[in-house]
Amino acid sequence: MSVLVYIEADNNAVKKSSLEALTYAAKMNAGDVTALVTDKAENLEELGKYGVKTVLQVNDEKLSTRPVSAIASAIAGAAQKVGANAVVMSRSSTVDAAAPRVGVKMKATVASNVVALPQNENGFVVRRGVFTGKAFADTKLEGENKILTIAKNALAVDDSLSGSATVEAFVPEFGAKDFAIKVTDVKKQEGDILLPEADLVVSAGRGMKGPENWEMIENLANKLGAATACSKPVSDMDWRPHHEHVGQTGIKVAPSLYIAIGISGAIQHLAGVNSSKTIVVINKDSEAPFFKSADYGIVGDAFDVVPKLTEALEKAGI
């Protein structure tokens, strides 16, 4: 048995979420760990300390936009080359789209959104997040080959292993339609911290009364180095853009700190945020349901509390 991990790199450095996937693969104790990288990346030998034995590096300009079908072909080809019967990947826009294709190509069983290491006592069982964070399902996977996509922050990165990885060039074979989707434009969001990747999130709801009152929310977010988010009614009323909508039908976030301001805490909103490590709720209604799901609560008017919090952070040198 052996495990293949598809890793992504930004600005030549392997992403933290990919290091989590490497740690997951090493801790599976399922044989050698091979990493596959199709992005430009440096110092790949150092992946040895995460338990990687070999790195397969693909140098192909056509893969720079991470075209999903071609990435899926590269992953299936690499798995075949090294005889891997498990593929582990951290969730990303590419991985979420590629994993089911790899599953069909490899005749493998796919489990997405995996939050813990497998249990092997009674078959191969992984815990998946389901019902949008409202429950977990311990899911048994049949078959020889398995594909796992790992939820962000599912486990801590472990770089305590020693050794250096061998880096080899790998040239995958592509299918006739692997480049059927043409990228016509990419608009990178400048400046702001991106919500899905943010470690700190400041989120506000209808309690802010109108879009003109968001300056204090942005000031607090800037002070913290946090991303801004909002509840569904706020994006539905076009007070804030749709890509800030956090909740069951919007973006799900799992930051270290989620500060909810003027959000009552409808069950659909909670579903999108309840994986956050620490939740702070600021609401003038002491009966707001969100307080039941919070770690810290402040009953008070946002217009009064938020500037005070920004000031207190300033005073504390943050």
Binding site: N122, F136, A137, D138, T139, L141, F291, D295, D304
Partner: peptide
């Protein structure tokens, strides 16, 4: 695939209220 068991997430501890 087959679901063997469901688990509900652990409840958060009691909220700590802080004066505004």
């Amino acid at each position: 695939t087959e679901v063997m068991a469901y688990q509900l997430p652990a409840e958060r501890g009691n909220v700590k209220m802080i004066d505004a």
